[in-house]
């Protein structure tokens, strides 16, 4: 099992590297020039040259990438922000917390709502409840979350005046709408997925076996069906979590949340390469880590997957030295 975890972590390294290289290239392809943005409209050729040199932007792309990677890997340094002239990581530290907090809360909300709804609509298949849940989840999946967010602002903030429209104002109450609006799509998707996975499980033979043992309907669902039905849902929740973090860009801008998403938009506008890169890398590393965690957790829950990796580990242990020697 440990081998599996270690090998999965090792696989992460090339993935993250690929992400960095792609994002780095894309940032350099963005129209606009950070040097000009900083210098404004009045500058001499000499000033421009000096500034590019200081920012390291005069060197070839590959050298820039090498420097960036060196600083990142060896010094854990994301560079200096062009707009605030402070280390990027210092700028982002508090914003990171906000974004991940909202993301985690949205994901928790998704689990708390989608899991019971999915179970109920599967167990009471074709009931009014099931049709209601299906209708709502299809609606939620179809509506874009920025529109939902705007409608929520109109209803809860302007009409009813219950909640503040800006997250920064009003303490924790300001975070209710961002968390909910960020989760709507995930709730809808996860509910649908769990419903179908649960429907699949309750018609399995082992459910009939459980009933034949004298278990009540509730016991067969909780003791026998749930664990089987949740297994395929874990990866869904994992992807939803990364999607929520990615989607925070939109929601944070609407509610003026002081998180990474709103910072990302500002940095793109300011051609702040280092900040854009840092945010993108942080979000993608986070997604990769979440997916890894999901895989590890599923392996622990599902004895079949666990056994597969355990035995694979054993088989590999013997020819390992040979593999290294043969250059694998």
């Amino acid at each position: 099992m440990l081998r599996y975890v270690v090998s999965r972590i090792l696989i992460m390294i090339p993935t993250v590297l690929a992400v960095i290289i792609i994002v780095f290239a894309l940032s350099r392809m963005m129209p606009g020039d950070p040097v000009r943005t900083i210098l404004g409209s009045n500058y001499t050729e000499a000033q421009y040259k000096e500034m590019s040199e200081r920012m390291g932007l005069d060197k070839p792309y590959v050298v820039q990438l090498g420097n960036y990677l060196y600083n990142l890997v060896v010094k854990h340094d994301f560079g200096i922000s062009y707009t605030t002239s402070r280390p990027v990581l210092d700028d982002l530290r508090s914003r990171m917390k906000v974004t991940f907090l909202i993301g985690t809360l949205s994901c928790l909300l998704t689990s708390c709502i989608a899991i019971p709804l999915g179970i109920i609509s599967a167990v009471r298949q074709n009931s009014v409840m099931d049709y209601g849940v299906s209708f709502l989840s299809i609606l939620m999946a179809a509506l874009p979350n920025f529109w939902v967010a705007l409608m929520c602002i109109i209803l809860f903030c302007l009409r009813l005046g219950w909640l503040p429209a800006t997250a920064a104002l009003g303490g924790w109450r300001g975070y209710i709408l961002p968390v909910v609006c960020n989760g709507t799509l995930s709730i809808a998707v996860t509910t649908r997925q769990l419903r179908s996975s649960m429907l699949d499980v309750v018609s399995q033979d082992y459910e009939r076996t459980a009933r034949a043992k004298g278990l009540s309907e509730r016991q067969t669902i909780i003791n026998h069906a749930l664990k089987n039905a949740l297994l395929p849902i874990l990866p869904v929740l994992g992807t939803q979590f990364s999607m929520i973090i990615g989607g925070s860009v939109v929601i944070e801008n609407i509610f003026s949340v002081p998180g990474m998403g709103s910072k990302l938009v500002n940095s793109i506008n300011g051609r702040d390469y280092n900040t854009v890169l840092a945010i993108t890398i942080l979000i993608s590393v986070f997604s990769i880590v979440v997916l890894l965690l999901v895989d590890i957790v599923s392996a622990f829950i599902d004895p079949r997957v666990k056994a597969e990796f355990a035995s694979r580990g054993k088989k590999r242990r013997l020819p390992r030295t040979g593999e290294v020697a043969s250059g694998r």
Binding site: T209, A212, N228, L231
Partner: peptide
């Protein structure tokens, strides 16, 4: 009623099912 049947199933009357491959719960 269901509750009465639950007391009989598995205790008074029990059943050996046809296909052992699918009859057992894979995660228990």
């Amino acid at each position: 009623k269901d509750t009465q049947l639950q007391k009989i199933r598995g205790k008074e009357i029990s059943m050996i099912f046809q296909d052992p491959m699918t009859t057992l719960n894979p995660v228990i």
